[in-house]
Design a protein around this nucleic acid. Sequence first.
DNA 1: GGTGTGATCGTA
DNA 2: ACGATCACACCA
Length: 208
Amino acid sequence: VRGRTLARSFYRRDSRALAPALLNKVLVHEHPVDGRLAVRIVEVEAYAGSRDPASHAYRGETPRNRTMFGPPGHLYVYFTYGMHFCMNVVGEEAGSVRGDASAVLLRAGAPLVGMDAMRARRAAARRDRDLASGPGRLAEALGIARAHDGLDLTRGPVRLLDDGVAPPSRPGRSTRVGLRPGRGDTQRWRWWVPGDDNVSRAKPSGPG
DNA sequence: GGTGTGATCGTA
DNA sequence: ACGATCACACCA
């Protein structure tokens, strides 16, 4: 996989602008044991910091969400449901003086490099399209855990590349997955690459 | 293809 | 308690 590492300036924008721009970018982990692991990002969700009740940042800074309050272009990893890790790219809110704690949840990827290592990590996946089709699955396939929280995506062993594949001009779009109703989740802040098999199963009900 | 449920722990 | 989830059991 050849491509240019995305610069800091790419991330310095509102998460709702950053999220669709991340579609079709390449996420690479130079794993110390398994070597290079890479996927193409095919599904994302935006979280809008202090103005978004569904965001971990809504209630202010805690030790857990500290990375989201830092500079853009870093990786926020959190642990949930007692067993899964999820990966987020930290962005920055437009128009705020100090910046806000916005982030983009990486929900699914299409495996590109290191697929044998991913299959070994994700033994439960029967088909390759299940290797990284969900936020917990994506983190597990790439060997990402709490220790990777806070890494700089412009430098680290975990990087984001532009390999020349543009984001879709008409991405799929819906409300976010897994949020209970009545929590202000009427906004359509989930985007995906249309037709990609690796997009996680939960699809909008009925015609959008 | 779809729905229902248990697992398991950090945070509030 | 409950969650930005997953796998498996079942039904179709």
